[in-house]
């Protein structure tokens, strides 16, 4: 087996950090995705424009650059806002926050498209039926559309989560002690790049495999009671 030369505990700590940042970015990304989809499907032109700008910008720029721009830009931006409100200290945006924001932004941009597709996948007949029984727009949204969006969006969101899990490696460039950075530190100490990068690869694979099993379970759960055509 692979000899980790005492760095096992460090890799484990890094793995935990990777999971934490992935879950935090997932939460932020889901919110941004829902918001983005709502904006893109909005009746207001300005909102649609903002939604379109967000997805185009973030999806067209490398995630590595997004991470770096947020890391260097966020503190300055937050500080600017704080100044504006008359607060004159410094506001710290830690690598963790910067990483979560950057990865959440990236996830949200793609999730916007997934949610938009899912909203539109709800059959128009159901919407018409809801209106015919006198439901308001809001009630239709809450009772008919939203519950089904989850099921339609899940496969797409699952793929995005797998992408997100791997993108966490990029946060190593801003000094967050996640799996990739811990591996790099181990390499510089032991001079065994192959050993540690391979170990990291297998840990990422394991995380991917666990996520895939979880997603499969969620997908089965979310489509309970859905009638399938006989094969």
């Amino acid at each position: 087996m692979i000899d980790l030369q005492g760095f096992g505990a460090q890799l484990a700590a890094g793995t935990l950090m990777t999971v934490e940042i992935a879950l935090a970015a997932l939460a932020l990304g889901l919110l941004l995705g829902l918001g983005g989809a709502a904006a893109k499907l909005s009746r207001f032109r300005a909102l649609r424009l903002i939604g379109g700008l967000y997805t185009t910008l973030v999806r067209g720029v490398p995630e590595l650059l997004v991470v770096l721009i947020v890391f260097f830009g966020a503190s300055l931006a937050v500080q600017g806002v704080a100044r504006w409100f008359g607060y004159d200290g410094y506001v710290e945006v830690s690598p963790f926050v910067a990483g979560v924001i950057a990865l959440g932004l990236a996830f949200g941009a793609y999730a916007t498209e997934v949610f938009r597709g899912a909203f539109q996948a709800v059959p128009p007949g159901q919407i018409e039926a809801a209106m015919a029984v006198g439901m308001s727009r809001r009630l239709t949204f809450l009772r008919i559309r939203l519950p089904q969006v989850w099921r339609f969006a899940l496969p797409g969101l699952g793929n995005l989560f797998l992408v997100l899990l791997k993108d966490t490696a990029l946060v190593s460039v801003i000094g967050l002690d996640e799996l990739m950075r811990k591996s790099t530190i181990a390499v510089s100490y032991t001079k065994e790049p192959f050993t540690f990068y391979l170990a990291a690869a297998f840990i990422y694979l394991a995380m991917t495999a666990v996520s895939m099993i979880g997603l499969h379970y969620l997908e089965r759960r979310s489509s309970r009671g859905v009638r399938r055509a006989a094969p």
Partner: peptide, 9 residues
Amino acid sequence: AGLVNPTSA
């Protein structure tokens, strides 16, 4: 999450 924690200089 205590992510943004203002600290005075």
